[in-house]
Nucleic acid binder design. Structure first.
Lengths: 343, 343
DNA sequence: CAGCATCAAGTGACCGGTCACATGATCACC
DNA sequence: GGTGATCATGTGACCGGTCACTTGATGCTG
């Protein structure tokens, strides 16, 4: 009756075979007579047998589990990547663990990573798009299978890595703004894992390629609040007509700061975000932004890990979509200054 | 050298004691001579021994792990609850697994829940604030420790439950709007697990208590888009001057629909949201909303589970904060109609 | 029909811990 | 000084699977 306490040996007894034969049947081993297989399967059903993952893991030495180390999933990109990992992992029969790094005290980070990164707890995927993630990656004990999600510009990859190359996308967005007629583009940057993020690099390259002045980027965090603060500074400068923001939350804060300062978007200032959160189309004004396929990136990172763990398994080609500029209402050609048109 | 392959017996040999003594030391058992303890600890350090969670789980029959079943963490409330659970669980030395129900096909839901809800995989916390969650809860096999997070109005609780009672908060927000002078308050509702959500109930009670007409609630999903669609319907009705939304994403969509229809907020229509997402203060206009302590709810649910698993352990009082109305810019007294003031 | 390969199934050790119980030493007390 | 309680530690079984090897039975070949 009770589905627990039923072991492979109980099933064996019920089916009149050895425990090893039961093991063969539940693992789909080919060398079993159809008749025997059926008897065992019947016994499995009758007794409600469920193999113990724990015992299997102990005996075989592999766990079919992956733990994701991520700083904070309330940030859209991180949450979406986690979702992608989880989906792909579940399809492959893996269980997925999680550890939020943001709530780990810095001094206990190494110990925490060592605990969740125990080999008996399975493999690791570290989302290393920020400093905490990078530090966590460095704290991973040797001998553990690990895959990282990192910025393209991050240097020495100690482990297999899925890179998020949004430098090209930042450059594209910047050229788009310049193409609208803006003299230059300002940048409100998210923190970077490497100190020199791809988004900053792409933005800078596009500006220098176009031969326009490169303003100092404003370094913010990820929150709307820090975007708001950066936005106030930018709003005070009448030369600012185009702002590329490191993510959509920053853009939201910038939008608000501009509004409070009486600068209209997009008439006076164009704003472009990054990520395309589900809310972006409903901001006021609807946000032009660079869509990124975080879910696909998550799936790819799991596929990479899976290939590592089981080199004989099916290869999966990376399937993450390339970043894409979504033009909405918050960007447009600059109005010539000191011209009194109708709004 | 290699931190793997070092077992409790290797340590025992190195320290000149029995494997059982090593077990006692690593578990902090009191009946060990300080001298012996020190020798063992030294050997542990020298060999880089790390106990295998798998082996411990198999032998002891307990796992110190919890899996969270949740529909979709990109929704703020769910993500924050998960974060709360994870923090509390990590503090207690539990590992945290996750399963996103939104990406599970309905016909495989039962099988998926049975798999992640395997007793050998630890206990379960099910976020049952919606239909998928409720169905998952029903699919949990017997004999598994499980705690649910549910709406207060959800009936038969088959398992220990942390209830989110936002009926009172909805009533409070509704009374607040009536108090500003609105003739009634319209409601855009999120889907409910029970068909009759607490938020709807609280809203309706506040209206009937005040003796004002009760409009038909508009049933939306969770997305800004569905809020937008509901908002268009409401914007077309000049009698609508106050809208209570089931969450902040809906409110964002409503805000946009009102704006497009030329109805000003809060001058023509007041909008109140639910949840207080981090972005709410930066919406345009800044959103009046009901803050909810999802993180606290998550912590409480884990504490409940932990108490269940280990009745001898320290009791933890529920610590989630009560919902709280945060008044910002999107709500205010209604302007008398057909009066041409200056904006 | 001997000889060998192949197949279906079984046997017992083993993974790395915990558990129940056994053992010998120390100590208190009458 | 014998008796029993308490303490520190050791012994071997056990959790529920997998692994390597063995055992009969059957089939193919020359």
């Amino acid at each position: 009756m009770d589905s627990r306490k039923v072991s492979i040996r109980d099933v064996a007894r019920a089916a009149g075979v050895s425990h090893q034969t039961v093991s063969r049947v539940i693992n789909g081993h080919p060398r079993v007579t159809p008749d025997t297989r059926e008897r065992v399967q019947q016994a499995v059903r009758d007794l409600g047998f469920r193999p113990s993952r724990t015992a299997r893991a102990l005996a075989s030495g592999q766990v079919d589990a992956v733990t994701v180390l991520v700083s904070d999933t309330t940030l859209y990109g991180y949450g979406a990547a986690l979702q992608g990992i989880e989906e792909a992992a579940r399809e492959a029969g893996f269980s997925v663990g999680i550890c939020f790094l943001a709530s780990v005290a810095p001094e206990t980070l190494a110990a925490t990573v060592a605990r969740v990164g125990d080999p008996s707890a399975g493999a690791l995927i570290v989302v290393a798009w920020d400093q905490v993630g990078i530090r966590a990656l460095q704290a991973v004990p040797a001998g553990v299978a690990v895959v990282a999600l990192s910025e393209a510009s991050a240097l020495d990859a100690r482990c297999p890595t899925i890179r998020l190359d949004d430098g090209a996308a930042a450059a594209h967005a910047t050229r788009y703004l310049l193409g609208l007629g803006h003299r230059t583009v300002h940048h409100v940057a998210i923190p970077s894992s490497s100190g020199r993020s791809d988004r900053i690099r792409g933005w800078r390259e596009a500006l220098t390629d176009a031969g326009v002045p490169v303003p100092e980027p404003l370094h913010a965090s990820w929150t709307p609040r820090s975007g708001y603060e950066a936005g106030r500074a930018l709003a005070a400068d009448p030369d600012v007509t185009a702002i590329l923001c490191g993510n959509d939350d920053l853009a939201l804060g910038v939008l608000r700061a501009l509004h409070e300062a009486g600068r209209r978007v997009p008439e006076d200032v164009s704003v472009v975000g990054f990520d395309d959160v589900p809310q972006a189309a409903y901001y006021h004004p609807a946000l032009t932004t660079v869509r990124q396929d975080f879910t696909g990136l998550g799936r790819d990172s799991f596929a990479l890990l899976h290939g590592l763990l089981d080199p004989a398994g099916p290869r999966r080609e990376p399937g993450a979509a390339r970043p894409e500029l979504i033009v909405r209402e918050s960007s447009g050609p600059p109005k010539r200054r000191n011209t009194g048109e109708q709004s």
